[in-house]
Structure formats: C-alpha cells, structure tokens
Design a binder for these strands. Structure first.
Lengths: 212, 212
DNA sequence: TGTTGCAAGTGATATTTGTCACAACATATA
DNA sequence: TATATGTTGTGACAAATATCACTTGCAACA
C-alpha cells in the first residue's frame, strides 16, 4: 500500500484504499511476456516496480517497439482493449523484474465516475501515450532508417539513464522492423562519427551523441 | 440544437443545453485549413456537418494522413493539445463544407466531471482514435508501399462509400509520404490487376478490389 | 584447451523507393 | 482555336534497404 501510494502520488487516499482491496499484485521476471498479441485482455496493469516494453505485433510475429512502461505508469492500450473486450494486438515484455497491479475488467470505468483523481490519471495516461505513439508515427513517416535508429537509441538511453545499453543488433533490427545487417552498418557509421562505441551485447554512449 | 442532438445522440439532454450555450458554431468551406501545425490550439472541435482530414505535419510541411473526421466525431488530438496548452503538430483540412462546434479550452475537463455522457464520449474518442493511429503504425511499420497504398485507398473508399474517389496521385503521394512517381506506378499495377480504373483527377473502384 | 553457440562484420547482389527529365494528355480559358 | 496549367506516364538512374553467404570474434563451459 505504501508502495502504491509512493508510485501513484496523484491518486487520492480513499481511492487507494479501494484500489488496494480490489486489485491484485503480480510478479514477473525478466524475459517474461505479460500480454501476448492475439489473446484477450481481461486486466489493465499499473506498474509498481520494474520495467516493461510495449510492442505492436503483426501476424508473422514481428514486434515493433512502441514505448517503455515504468513504475507509476499504466498501459493505455490494455485499458482500451479491456474496455472493448477485444483481442490485444500488442505484446508486453518484462525488461527488469516487475511488480504489477492488475485491475479486473470493468472497474476502470466504474472508478472513473467515483474517483476524480483516477479519472484524471486515466485521461493523462491516454494523452501521454497517444502523444508518444504520434512521435513514433513521425519517426517512421518522415525519417529514414539512420534517423529512426538515432531516435530509437535516444529513447533507450534516456530510459535507462546510463551509458551502456544492453541490447543486440538483431533486437534493435526487429524492434525497428528492418534487418540486422542494416542496423549493424548504421551503428558502425555512428561509431565512426564518435557517437557510440560498439561491443558484444551492448552499446556504449559517448559524449558525441548529443542528446540535447 | 436539434442538429447537435441528432449528431451526438449519446449525449444527455442536460449536457446538450450547456453545450449549446457555451460553444460556438463555425462554418468552413472546402479546402480551408482549420488547425495549422505549429499554432496553439485553444479550442476543441465537434463535427456537425461535412468532412475533415487530419494530418500529422513535419518541419518541412509534409502532411501525413492520419484519419478522417466525420459528423458526430471529435478530434482527439485537439483535445489533447488543448488540455496541455501545447502547440499542435497536426493539420485539419476541410474536405467537404463543414459546420463545427468549437469548445473553448478548459471546458472539456470541467464538463467531464459534471456530465457522465460527455465523459464517456471523450473517452470513446480517445480510444477509437488511438486504435486508428495504431493501425496506421501497423501499415507503415510492417507493410511495403503497395500494401500501404491499398490500405489507404480502402480507407478512402470506405469513407466516401462510393465508387469514385476524387484525388490526384500527387496528393496520395504526400499523404503517404512518398513520391508521385511511385504512386503512379503502383496504381498502374493495381489497374492491370483489375482492382481500379484510373482517370484524370479520380480513381474508380472496380469489383476486383476486394474490400472484404 | 578446445568446442560450441551466438553476435557481429562484410562483400555481393536484388529489390524497393526516390529523383530527374521530359513527353503526353486533359481541361479551362483567352 | 491556341495557350496555359496541371495531371499522368515513363525511362533512366541514384540511393536506401533487403537478402544471402560467409567470416570473424567473443564468451561460456565441457
């Protein structure tokens, strides 16, 4: 409960009491998949601890990266799907061991009418994710792969707030929906420009990478 | 007022009374631009009559098509921008002479707490547009230009619910963020496959175009 | 130490998409 | 009818991206 309050400071005390009794805590470890594209979503999740990555998935199982989900955040898409009782077309992967609060279908709407702070939280969630997805649209609609790769790396480095990003070229390639060779070559160019240094299984951020 | 009620049947009568007194009606004719990327949005719009197209715009003025806005619908992105008092990065163009209801900034949230039907309407707007934008992401992330073009045409023919689509290759090209020549060639191929017939300034839908 | 399994580097080549130049055609208007 | 303007068709070529085949290198571990 203290944990919940800490992570979601905008929510009122009376709502937190209700939330605590009517939601469940679930734990997942690195590598697990929480929502699988194609399955029905019956719950919405709030993140208490850890880190998730949200993907859009197509019929062939390709996974296109949309955004990170951090503690204190909720998955907008799972809210939408849950409210419509529709099949999910997204996948959520656990990046760091994660503790989730799962909210059963139907509660979201009911609580919105009863608790203004929850109402505001849901709206903010929709809004911020909508904006983030629009930025993703910008990146694919208006930019070529080298710029998209920079945008991708920027988001990842910002997220981990560190100088080393543990990821393979193959993973980057599938999350940007291109091939490994293309990513390897573009990364090589970035290394030559002094933006990053390449290693096995991780990429090191150099000062040359202007994050503005 | 009768018009409003007709177009937005889900909204309660008491809310419609408030809406009528506190919003303004505005008329626009074909070709006009209602929201320009880069300018601040102070109003949210509900569509009473006509037809709008919503675009995402980049710094160079390229316009990437996101979705249509019909009578009975509201612009989700303008709601988001208005609520954050942020610059818009979208453009709205009038396709058919349009009558809009403009709602001043600040009212949206206030009314959400007072009127459940309005609350529901705003949520539904966010949800359906979010989903539509995710489909757009799918189309650019997972598909090549010929498939994207089919998806684009499908949406346009569904919208007008007719067999003739009045549009130039150049317009299609910029709305898909590619070049006119590419579109002309792909359209030619679709014509050869018996899906469409090409004319000056319009494209004719044939039965070969399976809209499923 | 040697083997194995990934990850990454790289050349060659195919395909897709973008760009340029210009011709052909339709439509409106003088 | 002649002219101007915008739309479409098309060849040639450039650039970006995709695919294939193979090498190199790193790291775990038998």
């Amino acid at each position: 409960m203290n944990n919940i309050k800490e992570r979601f400071p905008s929510l009122s005390n009376d709502f937190l009491t209700v939330l605590e009794t009517e939601s469940n805590v679930a734990n997942f470890s690195r590598g697990e998949i929480i929502m699988q594209a194609g399955s029905y979503i019956r719950n919405t999740v709030l993140v208490l601890k850890g880190l998730l990555k949200i993907y859009r998935e197509d019929d062939e199982g390709n996974e296109f990266f949309l955004y990170y989900l951090q503690p204190g955040q909720a998955c907008a898409i799972s809210m939408i799907c849950a409210s419509k009782q529709e099949k999910s077309e997204i996948t959520a992967k656990v990046i760091e061991d994660t503790e989730l609060l799962t909210i059963p279908f139907g509660k979201i709407e009911k609580w919105m009418q009863e608790f203004p702070t929850w109402n505001q939280f849901v709206l903010d969630t929709y809004r911020s994710r909508f904006e983030e997805v629009l930025q993703v649209v910008d990146s694919i609609a208006f930019h070529s792969m080298d710029e998209r790769l920079e945008f991708y790396l920027k988001r990842h480095f910002e997220q981990c707030d560190c100088m080393d990003l543990e990821i393979t070229h193959q993973t980057i390639a599938s999350e940007l929906s291109t091939s490994r060779e293309v990513i390897s070559r573009l990364l090589k160019k970035m290394e030559q420009r002094g933006m990053i240094r390449l290693h096995r299984n991780y990429i090191q951020l150099l000062d040359g990478f202007i994050t503005q």
